Computed example of a mutant assay.
Amino acid sequence: MHQLDDTDLEILEMLGEDARRPFSEIADRVGMSGPGVSDRVDRLRDAGIIERFTVDVDRTQLRDGVPVFVQVRGHAGSVQELKDDLASEDPVEHVFVTAAGECWFVARPPEGSVRQWLDDRIDRDEASVTVTLLDEVAWTPSIGGTAFALACAECGNTVDSEGEQATIDGERYSFCCTSCRDRFLERRDRIAEDA
């Protein structure tokens, strides 16, 4: 495994703009061959940097609904459970958890029933809920200007070309050195034995 370079970042940027962009087009822009770009993309997938290719759908073209931005503060239950519950709801497009432990989301509940839809999902006696009607939504994630660095799953240090990766219980982990990988596995085994 080697560190991400400018070519990797440019490939990621182009795939972020259009995940169906042909490798030959990317190759022309980055000065590589199509198979070379394919190898880079495979390496980025193997490293867990590219998790999946997806489609960005303009939901306004597919269905009705009132576009709202909702902020939930002080929810009595688990923020992770609330996030998972909201993410599984069909009208919910994006869910965010803030560093302060709040859950914010963008949704398109059926017209005329926004309050009822929210009341069915969030106990307003337990949480403060702010609802903002949205006029426009643009989702434009970008790779540009982002510095990528894999972090060691054990110590948090940057993983460089000396590092290694391991798939453990179906999850891909990066480690800065063999010692960190061994400590991680030992700790995981101890936790499994204690459970």
Results as ranks from 00 to 15, higher is better:
G101T: 02
G156Y: 14
R63L: 14
I26K: 07
D90H: 06
A192Q: 04
E51R: 12
L62T: 02
A100H: 11
G31S: 13
L4Q: 03
V129E: 06
G48W: 08
V106P: 11
I143T: 00
G170T: 04
A47P: 05
T140R: 04
T140Y: 03
T158F: 15
V79Y: 07
D125A: 11
T60Y: 13
R52I: 04
G31F: 14
I191R: 12
W104M: 02
F23W: 13
R20L: 14
Q165L: 15
V68N: 02
T167G: 12
D135I: 01
G101C: 04
D90F: 14
D84F: 10
M32G: 04
D125I: 01
T132R: 10
S128I: 01
R52C: 12
D64C: 07
R73S: 10
E81R: 08
G34I: 02
L44C: 13
T98C: 13
G34K: 15
D56G: 07
G74T: 00
R40H: 11
P35Y: 14
D119N: 07
A153N: 10
L82G: 00
G77C: 03
H94K: 10
V114K: 06
T146C: 10
F23S: 07
A19K: 06
S128K: 05
L4G: 04
G65L: 12
K83S: 06
E93H: 07
P35G: 12
C177I: 00
E17S: 06
C180K: 00
A127S: 04
S161R: 13
P141F: 07
E102P: 10
V57Y: 11
L15R: 03
I50Q: 08
R59P: 01
V30M: 15
V92N: 05
I168E: 12
R21F: 13
A27K: 08
S174A: 14
D125T: 02
D8H: 09
Y173N: 03
A19V: 03
A99G: 12
V92D: 05
E136Q: 04
A195E: 12
C177F: 04
D120A: 14
H2D: 06
R172Q: 09
D39L: 15
V72Y: 11
